[in-house]
Simulated scan of single mutants.
Amino acid sequence: MVVGLLHRAGARSAHLHLASFGAIGLCVTLWVRAKSIDQEQRGNAERRALFVGLWPPMLWLIGESLREPQ
């Protein structure tokens, strides 16, 4: 259902695969940035980086499901 909606909206597997790589870059950027802020805010920043780190597998798998014929 969701995959069909994404396909009709124009999303293709390459778009989701690129978004997955972008999320990896965002996660690394947030993690490096977390190391440069004060100790009081570091825990929240690291949790944010870990949360974003959960996105790449989801985006990649959605991209793979768009690759398969409907």
Rank of each mutant, 00 (worst) to 15 (best):
M1Y: 05
M1F: 06
V2I: 13
G4M: 15
G4I: 05
L5T: 09
L5W: 09
L5N: 09
L5A: 12
L5Y: 11
L5G: 13
L5Q: 13
L6K: 04
L6G: 13
L6D: 03
H7F: 03
H7V: 12
R8N: 15
R8F: 04
R8A: 14
A9R: 12
A9K: 06
A9F: 10
G10Q: 08
A11I: 11
A11D: 01
S13D: 06
S13M: 06
S13L: 01
A14R: 05
A14E: 15
A14K: 07
A14S: 09
A14D: 15
A14I: 07
H15M: 13
H15G: 07
H15A: 07
L16Q: 02
L18G: 13
L18S: 14
L18E: 13
L18K: 09
A19H: 13
S20E: 15
F21M: 06
G22Y: 03
G22M: 04
A23Q: 04
L26S: 08
L26N: 11
C27I: 02
V28H: 04
V28I: 13
V28A: 08
V28P: 03
V28G: 12
V28F: 14
T29I: 14
T29S: 15
T29V: 10
T29L: 11
L30Q: 12
W31T: 02
W31G: 10
V32Q: 14
R33M: 05
R33F: 12
A34Y: 06
A34D: 07
K35A: 06
K35V: 04
S36L: 12
I37K: 05
I37F: 00
D38F: 02
D38S: 15
D38C: 03
D38E: 07
Q39E: 11
Q39T: 07
E40Q: 12
E40F: 06
E40R: 09
E40S: 07
Q41G: 14
Q41D: 12
R42N: 00
G43T: 05
N44D: 10
N44F: 08
N44V: 08
A45Y: 09
A45I: 02
E46L: 15
R47G: 14
R48K: 08
A49W: 00
L50Q: 07
L50S: 07
L50P: 01
F51H: 08
V52L: 08
V52F: 07
V52M: 13
G53D: 00
G53S: 15
G53M: 14
L54A: 10
W55G: 04
P56L: 02
P56Y: 06
P56D: 04
P56M: 07
P56G: 02
P57Q: 03
P57W: 06
P57Y: 01
P57A: 00
M58D: 01
L59Q: 03
L61Y: 13
L61H: 10
I62S: 11
E64R: 12
E64H: 04
S65R: 09
S65A: 11
L66D: 01
L66V: 01
L66N: 02
L66H: 03
R67W: 14
R67M: 05
R67K: 09
R67C: 03
P69C: 05
Q70F: 14
Q70W: 09
Q70D: 15
